[in-house]
């Protein structure tokens, strides 16, 4: 890709969690592409609308193909891309608003199909680009510009939500732990099915919850995040659901279903079984006789 234009005016705020996510994605794609001998141009990043979606314009190093479409529709677009060319390595990047509010209707179908794409969701618990409105993951009671008296609806619990919708691979990461995050993104990309790596990626301007997430002893704040115990068997759905329901934010791979068959493989085997005719034969089948 050509060097980007100097007047491009988008910037993330200093300290934004999305910087860490971008770095993890760049490193993972570069390493995976080299190790697995994948042509770099086979990588496609489909971006949502919001601060996180701009990641697709900001990556350094070799450039993948990008698709920066409309709000909430990353998964349908990724469905078209992956089904149109199953050889491509398709990643979705979106925020909590794009993925869990306007785009939430698409998670279930993608999960049931086991669409073979990897979603990296940057959750900052707020609509940042539009300057600080309540999002699905904004906690109950929090004051934002659209909840001046405090939010009076409950927050979406992403892990319970993904698991109940049937996602095959669900992992939880934190932008302040880029190495672990990169590892989970890699596992998600290698996983043959619908994978979600949900990242806590704080907004330093509208929802700076770094202290809450990682704790601050000086301020007497216990960390909300903790590592998923090494003993956890990620193929155990009930145990994954139990962890998802526990208080706090577990970090690690919660669930990775055993032996998934991704949509593209299922479709290819179906398509090879069904009758195929050329157009002339089809026209002939309507002949008057």
């Amino acid at each position: 890709m050509t060097k980007r234009n100097p007047e491009y005016d988008f910037k993330w705020c200093p300290g934004c969690g999305d910087f860490g996510v971008k770095r993890a994605i760049e490193l993972t794609i570069a390493a995976r592409t080299t190790e697995m001998d994948i042509p770099f141009e086979n990588n496609v990043i489909v971006a949502g609308i919001g601060c996180s979606g701009n990641l697709v314009h900001l990556t350094d190093g070799p450039q993948p193909f990008g698709f920066h479409g409309i709000h909430g529709r990353t998964l349908p677009v990724a469905f078209g891309i992956k089904s149109g060319n199953p050889d491509l390595e398709v990643m979705v990047v979106a925020g909590d608003g794009d993925f869990l509010s306007i785009g939430a209707e698409h998670i279930g179908p993608a999960a049931q199909r086991n669409l073979n794409v990897t979603c990296v969701i940057m959750d900052n618990g707020v609509y940042g680009l539009t300057k600080g409105q309540s999002s699905p993951t904004t906690q109950f009671g929090v004051v934002t510009s659209t909840t001046p008296g405090g939010k009076i609806e409950g927050e979406v619990k992403p892990f319970q939500y993904y698991l109940s919708l049937g996602a095959s691979f669900v992992a939880s990461a934190f932008s302040s732990k880029p190495r672990e995050m990169a590892q989970m993104i890699r596992e998600g990309m290698d996983y043959p099915g619908f994978s979600i790596v949900h990242v806590q990626s704080p907004c330093t301007t509208y929802n700076d919850n770094y202290d809450v997430l990682r704790g601050n002893a000086k301020k007497g704040i216990d960390p909300l995040t903790y590592d998923v115990p090494e003993s956890h068997d990620p193929t155990d759905f009930r145990e994954a659901l139990r962890i998802a329901q526990d208080p706090g934010i577990p970090l690690g791979v919660l669930y990775a279903a055993d032996n998934p068959e991704p949509l593209d493989e299922r479709y290819a085997s179906l398509n090879s079984r069904l009758r195929s005719r050329d157009v002339d034969q089809m026209i002939e089948s309507f002949a008057i006789q």
Binding site: F79, E105, Y267
Partner: peptide
């Protein structure tokens, strides 16, 4: 049907349009 084809029932028309745009892109 046949090599290189894809046909699917979408979950909504919003999905249909975004999906064919994704397919057109590739």
């Amino acid at each position: 049907r046949g090599e290189g084809t894809f046909v699917y029932q979408a979950s909504s028309e919003i999905e249909s349009i975004s999906t064919i745009v994704g397919a057109g892109f590739v």
